[in-house]
Computed example of a mutant assay.
Amino acid sequence: MNETHAEKSQNSDDELQAEYGFDYQKAKPNRFALRSGTQQLTVVVLDEDVAQVFTTPESVNKVLRALIESMPQAAKGETA
């Protein structure tokens, strides 16, 4: 006789376990999570052609800072 859905779920290995072992030595910090006491980060996705030229956050920030310096003073405070 065929098993019903309820019977399958009771016999399944997909059930939640009472306790899970977690190896904290293999854990990595979430690089996108805000850390208390540090500056806030904004994540921006670059188009593929731009990402091929600017491969590090430092290179992107350097060019953007130069662009900001070359902008007229009134436009610096405006957001697009």
Rank of each mutant, 00 (worst) to 15 (best):
Pro57Met: 02
Gln73Tyr: 02
Thr38His: 07
Leu46His: 04
Tyr24Cys: 09
Ala80Ser: 06
Asp49Lys: 00
Asn2Gly: 08
Ala6Leu: 15
Thr55Gly: 01
Gln25Phe: 03
Asn61Leu: 07
Glu78Trp: 08
Ala66Thr: 05
Gly37His: 10
Val43Met: 14
Pro29Lys: 08
Tyr24Pro: 03
Leu16Tyr: 05
Gln52His: 06
Ala6Trp: 13
Ala75Tyr: 05
Lys62Asn: 04
Ala6Ser: 14
Glu7Gln: 15
Phe54Met: 04
Ala66Asp: 05
His5Cys: 13
Asp49Pro: 01
Glu15Leu: 12
Lys28Ile: 10
Leu64Gln: 05
Thr42Val: 11
Lys28Val: 13
Phe32Ser: 11
Glu15Val: 01
Val45Pro: 06
Val53Ser: 00
Val60Ala: 00
Met1Val: 12
Arg35Met: 10
Glu3Asp: 14
Phe32Ile: 05
Arg35Gly: 06
Ala18Ile: 04
Asp13Asn: 07
Val50Tyr: 01
Met1Glu: 15
Gln25Ala: 07
Ala74Cys: 05
Ser9Pro: 01
Lys26Glu: 15
Arg65Trp: 05
Ser59Gly: 03
Leu67Cys: 06
Gln25Gly: 01
Ala75Asp: 15
Val44Trp: 00
Ala6Ile: 07
Val50Gly: 00
Glu7Tyr: 14
Ile68Tyr: 11
Leu41Glu: 01
Val45Gln: 08
Tyr20Gln: 03
Met1Lys: 12
Ala51Gly: 11
Gly21Ala: 02
